[in-house]
Design a protein around this nucleic acid. Structure first.
Lengths: 182, 182
DNA sequence: GAGAATACGGAACGCACGCCCCGGTTGGCA
DNA sequence: TGCCAACCGGGGCGTGCGTTCCGTATTCTC
């Protein structure tokens, strides 16, 4: 069999990095809907070059999102070992909120289909079920509910640019998820 | 000056109603993003005919949304006279949730710019401030926050088709808006 | 019932975007 | 240094959509 992984030429390697960097920036600013030409332009490259390195726009986004989601998952798994499951769960939500405040594509990133999304769901599921067992979260909330809420929250947080809003919305959602204390 | 408002021909009047009805249905099913051709097809009419009656797709949506938003506003104003401001506020949210569960374009409808949106904001503002003064809602929530939350909620509720989710999400949001009871 | 005003329909246009192609260029190796 | 494969750029294609145009059909008026 032939060499399965011939090394890239120097300019190709360089352009690949430029495209990835530009994609990170543009997606973060404008979300997944940003035109691919803009990414190519910011990278100082033609659209064809982008497609040489990434088969599709979605594949490019995946490459960008993967690293970030992996970080989030790692953080979630670390938090899941904490002594206080309720605090761990809500801390993770806060972290997600902070990430979303800076980057417009977070809501798309956690929704990218694939193994990473499943891992993310598993991690969320674990945090949620531990918090639920500890009595910190109202019992009827499912993981799917949680993901919907998170997406809604991330979208709402970007509605307009008023500072402080993401934090307030997060407070409200956290309070809403908490067990009722009659 | 000439007659400023010549009466429509019979077929024109008929088609106008058909277009409006088709638009109501299609927008409710598929949201504002639905192609205009589909509305024309369902009305049994050419696309040109739609444009004879409504200058733009947005104008058509406005015509459809106006009636519904006006109903919501009227309901909000009626609720605002209730004895229990907290219940009035949360009842209105529930009504909005019910509307959104049936129609996919609710989140777009309440965002249509114009006098009606301002009226809607005023009505919401009144409900919210009365509920806040009664101590039923956490004090730091602004009207703009509320609108963002509603939009996020309406979008999230349609994320997938699982029944019961809209109601659960609404419960969570309502609980989150409620004053803390330490 | 005939003529004129009005309305109809759907083909055509413009635009934005994802994606592909190919003539020209560049980098690595002998 | 010279050659060739790898790579580049950006113009071009296909698609989906909002919008417009114009030849034809329908309605109103007398």
């Amino acid at each position: 069999m032939a060499d399965p992984d011939p090394p890239l030429r120097a300019d190709a390697r360089r352009n690949r990095q430029r495209v990835l960097q530009a994609a990170r920036e543009v997606f973060a600013e404008s979300g997944f809907g940003a035109p691919l030409d803009e990414i190519a332009a910011r990278a100082g490259v033609g659209a064809g070059t982008v497609y040489r390195h990434f088969a599709t726009k979605e594949a490019l986004f995946e490459a960008v999102a993967t690293a970030r989601v992996a970080d989030l998952v790692a953080s979630a798994q670390r938090l899941a070992t904490r002594a206080d499951p309720g605090a761990a769960f809500f801390d993770f939500l806060a972290q997600l909120g902070a990430e979303a405040e800076a980057k417009r594509d977070t809501s798309d990133a956690i929704a990218v289909p694939g193994a990473l999304r499943d891992t993310m769901q598993d991690a969320l599921s674990l945090l949620l079920s531990r918090a639920r067992q500890a009595g910190a979260v109202r019992p009827e909330v499912t993981t799917a509910d949680l993901i919907s809420i998170i997406k809604g929250l991330l979208i709402a947080a970007h509605d307009d640019a008023e500072p402080g809003r993401p934090a307030r919305l997060l407070t409200i959602v956290i309070a809403g998820l908490r067990t009722d204390r009659p």
